[in-house]
Design a protein around this nucleic acid. Sequence first.
DNA 1: ATGACTGCAAATGTTTTGCAGGTTT
DNA 2: AAACCTGCAAAACATTTGCAGTCAT
Lengths: 151, 151
Amino acid sequence: MGQDTGRPAGDIFHDFIAAKGFKMTSQRMHILDVFLKKEGHLSPEELYSTVKTKYPSIGRATVYRVLKLLKEAGLANQVDFGDGYSRYEHKYGHAHHDHLICVSCGKAIEVVDEEIEKLQEKLAARYGFALEGHKMDLFGLCPACLQKKKS
Amino acid sequence: MGQDTGRPAGDIFHDFIAAKGFKMTSQRMHILDVFLKKEGHLSPEELYSTVKTKYPSIGRATVYRVLKLLKEAGLANQVDFGDGYSRYEHKYGHAHHDHLICVSCGKAIEVVDEEIEKLQEKLAARYGFALEGHKMDLFGLCPACLQKKKS
DNA sequence: ATGACTGCAAATGTTTTGCAGGTTT
DNA sequence: AAACCTGCAAAACATTTGCAGTCAT
């Protein structure tokens, strides 16, 4: 389901850009590159400063613009943990997943539960909705923080 | 589970304010009043303009500050549909619930599925997490919009 | 009286946009 | 050449904060 391990992300992006009649530029490739190397959920600002260290001439606005393109191209996912700014995670090589977030240390791990997915479908159907997607974030204490709290 | 139909929201707020050593003011009561009358999910800005029509002298900052207090007092819930600004819903008389949101008309309805709740617990436990809460939003087309799309 | 609260305007922090010049097709 | 892109700085957002004056306790 939605696993695209077949084609390199660069190709997907390239095709997307071409299909839209846009142009491939070095900045766009560099940003995608840095983005793909970073696992996890990063804010535009984090991505910007990482990009900046390698390619100092790239501007902040370009990072925001490319992030939007990546989202449109289906390579990035915009997530929101409700802490003020958005974060992006790359979808490339990642199947759909939800999040288990530690409220103490902030670490987030990716989870899936097929049974829950099915029940969501059924729940939506019960209200006559045609489900298109969902966002599920579970908040709690991770094992490590749980341990610390005991002391 | 978390249903507080017993005491008026005003009392709860009053007690909370007193317990904190804060002061009850007309602005705070007015804002709570307007907030409680509005069902659904409203942004601070929406609440502000509604408040403004009835009490023109109340300032924007006060609305934001009261919203924060209501959240602390357990009377309001901050939700985030990922569209740029936060929204608040009142918890008073509402048990925990998730959301089913129409991607076309934006309407959101409240849903609960006990079976899903249980599975979330189990899922978290599987990773050693002590679950404290969750956020689940399902996106899709509501029956009405589904109908329109067919034409 | 004291300490909290208010409205305003200014400040903040994130994201977007206008523009002049540079690049890709 | 044409259309698109870029970096920059300014603008646009939602939200927060500093302040001088006001009000609840």
